[in-house]
Computed example of a mutant assay.
Amino acid sequence: MSDSASPLRILLTNDDGIDSPGIAALREELTAIGDVTVVAPAENQSGVGRARNELAVRRDHPWGYALEGTPADCVAYGLRGLETDFDIALSGINDGPNAGNYVVGRSGTVGAGIESAFLGTPAIAVSSYHARDFFCHPPEEYDFSRPARVARAVTERVYGAGIFDDVDLLNINAPIDVPSPRMRVTRPLADYDQQVDHHDDTNLLGDGDREDTLNDDEMLVRLRDVSWPGTVGYENPFPPRDEHRERYPVGSDRRAMVDGEVSVSPLAVHHGHTEDPKLASVVESLSEQIE
């Protein structure tokens, strides 16, 4: 581990791809406090969670390496395939928020942090949002410098302070457009639904030249996330703001976003278990019945 006189050895990745402006802004800030090695996906890998591949092509990059793989692949390679003994891994800056239990669970940005934690290296996942636009798309039109400064400040303060004795991963959502935002320790809030539609039009698969048709016993099923109330897909869920303030309690990551704050959620990734005497009783009784 680095001592107080040595710069941090930082592994940096993301899920939007190595050429995204978010990772460029974060790298620029982190180089002021440590030695930064980038191992990031060659292409956009949003929403892949902690998916892994057995094989991946590595290409040299001025910042380190571009990997034709997932964010978790990048972290696994960086921590076990390079000679550097990294102190901490950062992932981001994602050009949209990763808030709420369900969204966090399948985020490629957070997935990289989870992979790092399983491999014994503390991690910070950093995502951004815009208080009016919500998603920062297209990312080239947004300035990621504020979330980058937030990430740098948090990294400087938490590393070596004992935070990672009990915390595996910090998940940060920072506003791009709110001056001097308040920072709040939060918890991911479970708020998710699924909208299911049935269709018989194969053109919905995205290939306008598709000639095959569905058989009589087939149906095209569309599964669409309802990650925020009243929205489907990438709509801005913030208006009306009062409605969301009532829905999300103070201390949740989503309430912090509604209020234009920086959400910092400490996460444990090693899937703990819950003691349940009722389950223990059922299992004990079944063990006596099964021959």
Rank of each mutant, 00 (worst) to 15 (best):
G64R: 01
L12P: 06
D35A: 15
E291S: 11
S20T: 07
D216K: 02
R184I: 04
Q289D: 09
S227V: 07
P266D: 04
H61E: 00
G49P: 05
S145A: 15
D165N: 15
R146D: 06
P181D: 05
D85C: 11
V36Y: 04
V264M: 07
Y248W: 12
G34H: 13
G251P: 08
L11I: 02
G81D: 06
R59N: 00
P138W: 10
G69N: 02
Y192G: 02
A151C: 09
I18N: 00
P240E: 10
D225M: 08
Y65T: 00
A66P: 00
V221M: 06
F134H: 05
I23F: 11
D242E: 15
E291W: 11
D207Y: 00
R146S: 09
A117N: 08
V221F: 04
Y192Q: 12
R80N: 14
G105H: 13
P138M: 06
L90K: 07
V221K: 03
D276C: 07
S4Y: 10
S287R: 13
M257G: 03
P138F: 10
G120W: 05
E141D: 14
I172G: 05
R182W: 02
L279H: 06
G105F: 06
R52Y: 02
V269K: 06
I290S: 04
S2C: 12
L267M: 08
A66W: 00
E141R: 09
L67N: 00
D35M: 14
R245S: 04
P181S: 12
V258L: 11
V232N: 08
D193A: 14
S263L: 01
L79G: 09
A112P: 01
E288T: 11
R184C: 01
H270L: 09
E261P: 08
I124K: 03
N94A: 15
G208M: 11
L8S: 12
P62E: 08
A268G: 10
A24G: 09
N44C: 14
A161Y: 08
G105K: 07
T13V: 01
E246V: 13
A99C: 13
D253S: 07
S263Y: 02
S285L: 11
G113S: 06
Y77F: 14
G162L: 07
S128E: 08
